[in-house]
Computed example of a mutant assay.
Amino acid sequence: MTDAVTDRTGARVAVGVEQADPVSAYTITVDDGPVVGRAEFIDHPKTEGERIIFHTEVDQDFSGRGLAKILLEEALADSIRRGITIVPVCPLFGRHLARHGDEFVAAGGAFRTPTRADLSAVTLAVRHRP
């Protein structure tokens, strides 16, 4: 999904997507290694074209390298390419869109504030994860 992206140390990183049911994730690897970070999401069960991003995590051994930011930027860029509205339940995505939402929308993105129904959908999906 990514082309020639590097982290703060200059290491090459790649972002991909793991599609699963019910919980999918944007994933990040460093230097062709194993997955070291994830931004988990569900596609909204009742509203076509909405993606609820609810949890982002990077392995502690890779903290401080900007990997969460790269995951966030790639997930948002992917949503623009696919015409998907982001529902930011994850605090990282929520803070970013609170600060930079106008820029995201100007670039062609769309997002909305999460509702209780969105939180319930995430809770249900996580409970039924294999």
Rank of each mutant, 00 (worst) to 15 (best):
V35K: 02
A98L: 12
F41I: 01
T29C: 07
G83C: 09
E103Y: 01
P34V: 04
V58Y: 09
G16T: 00
A125L: 02
G101H: 01
H55D: 12
A4E: 13
L119Q: 07
I53R: 06
R112G: 10
F54P: 14
T56Q: 02
V122I: 09
R127L: 13
E18G: 00
V89E: 11
D3E: 15
L72V: 11
H100E: 13
E18L: 01
D21S: 02
A98W: 03
P114N: 10
T6H: 08
L97C: 06
A98V: 12
P88V: 10
I86D: 14
V89K: 11
G108R: 09
P88M: 10
P114F: 11
A107L: 04
V35A: 01
F111S: 05
G33E: 07
Y26K: 05
V13E: 03
R38N: 02
A107G: 04
V126R: 03
D43T: 01
R129H: 14
V105Q: 07
D118M: 06
I53S: 14
G108P: 08
G37R: 02
F111I: 06
D59L: 13
G94F: 12
R112F: 07
V89N: 10
A125F: 05
R51E: 03
P45V: 00
G16K: 00
E50M: 07
S63Q: 15
A77P: 02
T6Q: 08
V122P: 12
V36Q: 07
A121R: 01
V87H: 09
G66I: 07
A117R: 08
I28W: 02
A39V: 01
V36M: 04
A11D: 14
Y26S: 00
T115S: 10
V5P: 13
G37S: 06
L97D: 02
A11Q: 14
D21F: 00
A121K: 05
I86T: 15
D7M: 12
E73I: 07
E18A: 00
L76V: 01
P114H: 10
V13D: 05
V122F: 04
V15P: 01
H44Y: 00
E40K: 04
R82Y: 07
K69Y: 13
I52T: 06
